[in-house]
Amino acid sequence: MNWILVAMIIALCIPIYEAWQDEDIWQKMLAFGSIATKTSIMILVISVLRDDWMIGVVGVLILSVGNAGLMLLAHVLRRLNQL
């Protein structure tokens, strides 16, 4: 089952490259959202592979609450040019 994890690592490298080379702040935010979701899904996969419920609960929490930071940052950035 480890090939799933390897495929996810390769998929994770795509938004990391995008965040590195794109100068537009919104493209970086998109890459950040993509990475935040991908990493929490990877935590869930690891928890299933190891049959560890503690990591599973943490993965669910990061998946559901983690994107709130992205939303708060987006609101601050959106109002940057309005002042």
Binding site: A19, A31, F32, I35, A36, T39, S40, I43, S47, L73
Partner: peptide, 16 residues
Amino acid sequence: VIRGILGAIAALVYAL
């Protein structure tokens, strides 16, 4: 924004 990415990766490594 990159700090957010670093945090997400760090959380993954810690869980791993």
